[in-house]
Design a protein around this nucleic acid. Structure first.
Length: 265
DNA sequence: ATGGTGGTCGCACCA
């Protein structure tokens, strides 16, 4: 069975519901994972999501900040919404589909501007979040299970996941301590980086371009912050990947673009 | 130095 998963940091679901519709019509995902939906659960646009063809929708939102959702054409028969670091900030949703397929929609804390946990509580939170999640994955997930981890991980781990490795070594998202924490998370099960499975490490690949640049295309100063990882049980099912870079040029865009992986399950 | 949200209509907070 062909199965297409797309993940996108939408940066406000209600503001960009028309762009979600565009993604759905152009990419036709079976499952769409969304982060930073920025909407409280009572105000979630459920009817609009159903009108896009997703009969099964799970969401875990809050007012103004964070929030994750999974829109699915396949039945979701259970949902979990773990909290990390003792905060109820709604960054993780686990949806179980049929045949034991488990989809994690994840939004890792961005971590603020100063890459020092002693000076910056947001950076400390980011590292603690990744470490708690790593410990949990190591005990809860086995390599034989069919698990997909998708979302905005807010870390660009590889040299060619950023426009300049040298210039970003002390910029939050690419510092060695974050890369080490994300690598530990990846090794916890371990997970396969489904996008780099198809795109060689030697090739630059970005999923995010800052809003602060006057022209994001000018120097292509992007980072690969959004990821899709799979357990070894799914590695042989991987068929293709796509980063929908053109979405950054859509009207009133998110600063992130959709990332897709195709499976043959 | 831009964009989204919420509270208040200029600003704080987050990314």
């Amino acid at each position: 069975m062909g199965f297409r998963l797309v993940t996108w940091n939408v940066n406000s679901l209600r503001l960009r519901i028309d762009l979600v519709e565009r993604i759905v019509s152009e990419m036709a995902p079976d499952v769409l994972c969304l982060q930073e939906i920025k909407v409280d659960d009572p105000l979630f646009p459920l009817d609009a999501c159903r009108a896009l063809g997703f009969e099964h929708v799970a969401f875990h939102g809050m007012k103004s900040y964070n929030g994750v959702a999974v829109l699915s054409r396949h039945r979701i028969h259970s949902v979990r919404t773990p909290s990390w670091c003792g905060k109820d900030d709604r960054r993780h949703l686990i949806a179980e589909l049929d045949d034991g397929l488990q989809i994690h929609c994840l939004y890792v804390p961005a971590g603020g501007d100063i890459p020092d946990p002693d000076q910056n509580p947001k950076f400390a939170h980011k590292l603690a979040f990744l470490r708690e999640l790593t410990a949990w994955m190591a005990t809860e997930i086995r390599p034989e299970q069919k698990v997909i981890l998708a979302g905005d991980f807010n870390v660009a781990p590889l040299v060619n996941d950023v426009w300049s490795h040298k210039q970003l070594l002390s910029v939050v998202s690419h510092t060695p301590v974050e890369v080490e924490a994300l690598t530990a998370l990846q090794n916890s099960v371990p997970f396969v980086d489904a996008v780099r499975h198809f795109v060689p490490d030697t090739e630059k690949l970005f999923t995010w371009w800052s809003y602060r640049s006057p022209d994001w295309t000018r120097n292509d100063r992007g980072r690969r912050l959004d990821h899709i990882w799979v357990t070894p049980a799914l590695k042989d099912s991987l068929r293709a990947t796509l980063v929908a870079r053109e979405a950054r040029a859509w009207p009133q865009p998110s600063d992130h673009v959709p990332v897709m992986v195709d499976f043959d399950l």
